[in-house]
Simulated scan of single mutants.
Amino acid sequence: MSPSSSSSLGLFTSICLLQSVVAVTCGALMMFYLDEIAAFGHGWETAGKLRGSTPHDQLLIQTSDSFAGLLLLAVGFLLFMVAFVRDHGFQIFFAKGCILLHAAMALWRVYFERRLEDLAHDWPRQLVGDLVLSLSWVFFLVYSWREKYD
């Protein structure tokens, strides 16, 4: 392995580990502290509206949010495992896939979340988060291409 590819490996590992910590933390908080996180992110009034109005709705929403948290937890563990893959071709492929995933989330926020009255004021902040996470992978690709052509 050349010295330049080892620095690219270090960058890939760092990005994966950082995003893994974010995903695991958010997933665990969604599963166990959903009310507090919703109040922190949206405010108490909006968080109350997001809980649902009937006990049946509340149970469905709580179950759905718990599964979303579990999915984030799984994504975090997947990112942790992928962080140690040394195949440069796979790293490039994975980074491109992550960029597409974050772009899809950004489009979802722009086209659907902004139309929801209770979430309309939160989507720009979440959109910025999606773009920052995507830019970390773009930075990795640019860094990898720079190493390849230098």
Rank of each mutant, 00 (worst) to 15 (best):
V22Q: 01
K49N: 03
L73N: 07
T54C: 04
W44L: 12
I37E: 03
L60M: 15
L50S: 05
G43F: 10
H56Y: 03
A47D: 09
I61C: 10
L29P: 05
A39M: 10
D57T: 09
C26N: 09
F67P: 01
I37C: 03
L59P: 10
L70T: 09
G43N: 12
L71V: 11
C26R: 05
L34C: 02
F32E: 14
L72H: 06
G69C: 04
I37R: 07
E36G: 11
A38V: 04
E45F: 12
T46C: 15
G41C: 10
L34W: 05
F32S: 15
E36F: 04
H42N: 13
A47E: 05
P55E: 11
T25N: 03
I61H: 05
V21Y: 13
I61R: 02
I37S: 00
E36V: 08
T25G: 08
A28K: 11
F32Y: 15
F32D: 14
E45R: 12
L60T: 13
D35Y: 06
D57Q: 12
L50E: 05
A38D: 09
T46D: 15
A23W: 07
S53W: 03
G41D: 06
R51Y: 06
F40M: 14
G43T: 10
L60W: 13
V21A: 14
G52C: 01
G52W: 08
G43R: 06
R51K: 15
E36K: 10
L72V: 03
Q58H: 10
T46Q: 14
L59D: 12
A68M: 13
L60E: 12
G41T: 08
L70I: 12
G43M: 06
D35C: 04
L59F: 12
G43H: 10
R51V: 07
E36R: 11
Q62W: 04
P55M: 02
A38R: 06
L71I: 11
L59T: 12
G43E: 03
F32K: 14
D65E: 12
H42V: 09
H56R: 00
T54W: 05
Q62K: 11
L70P: 04
C26Q: 09
F67L: 10
D35T: 11
A38N: 09
L70M: 14
T25P: 07
H42K: 09
I61W: 01
I37F: 02
V22A: 09
G41A: 08
T46A: 15
T63L: 03
L71C: 11
V22T: 07
F32V: 15
S66F: 14
A38W: 01
